[in-house]
Structures are given as C-alpha cells and as structure tokens.
Amino acid sequence: MNQFKKRDLLEAIVGQPASDGDGVKLTRVFGGRDAARFDPFLMLDEFGSDSADDYIGGFPSHPHRGFETVTYMLEGRMLHEDHMGNRGLLESGGVQWMTAGRGIIHSEMPQQDHGTMRGFQLWLNLPAAEKMQPAHYQDLPAAAVTLHTLPGGGMLKLIAGELRLQDRTLQGAITGKSTKPLYLDLLLQPNEQLELPVPTAHTLLSYVYEGGIEVQGEQRQASLKAGQLGRFAQGDRLALAAGAAGARLLVIAGKPIGEPVVQYGPFVMNSEAEIHQAVRDYQLGQLAG
C-alpha cells in the first residue's frame, strides 16, 4: 500500500514589478505581506534583463539584521563587499548564502555594463534564538553546487538540504540550518515527469521561470506557468510533469518557525521594540558591532 501523499497546489501567485537598490528593476514574486503563509520564507525576488539600465545601479551599501539572504545567479557577475572587509565575486551559476544575524552592512554591485544579469534573491527568516548571532556567509561557485542528471534527461541543481531519490541521496553544500531548507533549481525536458520527497510539515513553494508544469496532486491536477509561484498543501511528495516546451523552476521548502514576524525594510525581528533597537543601532553605528 502506498502511504505517500502527493502535495496539492493551494494557490498560484503572480509576481509584481518592483525596483530596489539604486533603481534595479525586478519582479517581487512574494514578500512583505501575510508572512505566516510562507513561514520560514520572507521574500523572493527575480531579476533579469539584458539592458544595463535595468541593473547597473546595483545595490549600494545597506544594512540587514535578523534573517538570511540567498542570492543565486543564473547569468552575470555581482561583487559583494561588507563592513568586515569581505569581498566576493558571484558569477553565473554561483550562490551566496548570507546569514545577517545581528547585523551586516554590505553592497552588491554589478561587474558588467552590458549583457544579461539574471537571478534570484530569497529571504529566509531566523528563529529568535539565532537572530543576534554574528554575521557570516558562504560563497559557492557554480562548481560547488550539486548537480544530478534526471532519468528523463533533465537536470537537478541542489543548493541546500538533502534529497533522497530512488537510487541515491544527494547532499547540498548548505546544511545544518535550523529551518532545514531545501533549495532546488530544476530543468525538465518536454513532458518529463518527476516526483520529489519533501518533509511533510515543511512549507513548500515552487516558482516557474520558464515553460510550464502540471502539478499532479493527491486530490487534483493543476498547472503553473512561467511567472507563477505555487504554494502547496501538506504532504510528503511533489509530483510534477513538464509541459510540451519543458520547464525551469525553483523548488523551495523549509521548516516553519512559528514565531511573530515584525519587518521594517531590511530588519526582521520578533517585536516592534526589537525593530526600534535595530534602527537605533544602525543610526549609532552599532548594528554590526
């Protein structure tokens, strides 16, 4: 008897045009409202343009406190610099997983004045007990991201977490997080089918950025097309089938924290008092002390 339960699609969300930093044009896939629906995730932005005017301003020096940022570059080159004197060049296929903790002040600036700049930034919350830890991060070049060829000819990139497939267990470069995040980038060939195990209680999201997929849920089938984010019901399997043009999509899952979320721009804490303290610390130059 098959005891596995396939996840049904609860809703499809369409991202909205936005800008951030020094006028960088992007799509805010989700973020800023109804944080409990996405717990432990706070925001997902997609940026992508072959016009330098859309990205050349970059993200000049700015602060963060209380959460993690995950920047995944599909194409382009971005330089990260922070108040601790760290420098890191993020290139095509690379990932930066940054834990802001008690505070970091950094910049993210394009290292190109033409060509395509394309990628994603995900914000992942931290539990209260971890919000004031020292800031740190991992830079992963493309070669450090786990790759796996799927039986149907597609490709799976595992950025974070562990994934148990039928014939093997894959390990991402990012592990040991209390929210136990799973972060995949999938390339599916036309009409390719795939079933992925996902911890039952994890929040599960999937963002299709090329092509389209059919979600084969326990109760019904549904579809997602490019530019749509899917949020899923509980279950321990995600069953997908790519459309006739194939698909490229992110699959993101994490253990909910279940704590209050109070956000003020780049600060994410558990109470208004903590937000006020973060603002004061920043104004006094003590945010990342």
Rank of each mutant, 00 (worst) to 15 (best):
D167S: 09
Y137E: 07
K180A: 12
R118Y: 10
D34P: 08
G154E: 10
D236Y: 06
R237M: 04
A201C: 07
S178V: 05
Q133V: 07
A201P: 06
G211L: 08
T99H: 00
P63D: 04
A222T: 03
Q277G: 07
L238F: 08
R248Q: 15
E68H: 11
Y282T: 11
L170C: 03
G15K: 10
V95T: 06
Y72C: 06
L249S: 14
A244P: 13
G23D: 06
S92T: 08
A222D: 08
G243M: 10
H80S: 04
Q234W: 10
L122S: 02
V95D: 00
Q286Y: 10
T175W: 02
G85W: 00
A135G: 05
R248V: 12
M132G: 00
T179G: 03
M78N: 07
G289C: 05
D53L: 11
G235M: 05
P63Y: 03
A135M: 01
D39L: 09
A239D: 04
G93R: 04
M1R: 10
F30Y: 15
S49I: 13
R87K: 08
L204H: 05
Q111R: 06
Q138G: 03
G176W: 03
Q166T: 13
L170F: 01
H106Q: 00
G154V: 11
L9F: 05
M109K: 06
V198F: 02
F67V: 12
L194M: 06
L163R: 05
H136D: 01
D20Y: 00
L140C: 04
V145R: 08
P190K: 05
L196W: 02
G119T: 05
P260W: 09
Q16H: 08
G176C: 03
V70I: 15
N125R: 09
H83I: 02
A144W: 05
K177A: 05
F267I: 12
L240T: 00
L147Y: 13
D139I: 09
T203A: 07
E81R: 14
A36V: 10
L284A: 15
E214Y: 01
K225T: 15
A288G: 02
V14H: 12
D50V: 11
G119E: 02
G258W: 10
T71L: 06
A244H: 14
A35M: 11
G85S: 00
T200N: 09
H80G: 03
E274A: 15
G235N: 06
Q3H: 14
D22V: 03
A244E: 15
R28F: 07
S271P: 09
F67H: 13
E272K: 14
A245S: 12
Q234G: 13
Q96C: 01
E162V: 14
K255M: 15
A247H: 13
P260E: 09
Q111D: 01
T69S: 04
G48K: 13
Q263L: 13
A160E: 03
I56C: 10
K180G: 04
A144F: 04
M109V: 07
D54I: 12
D8F: 01
L165K: 05
M269R: 11
P260K: 11
M73I: 15
F47P: 09
L182D: 01
L229I: 12
K25Y: 02
G230F: 10
K157F: 09
L204I: 07
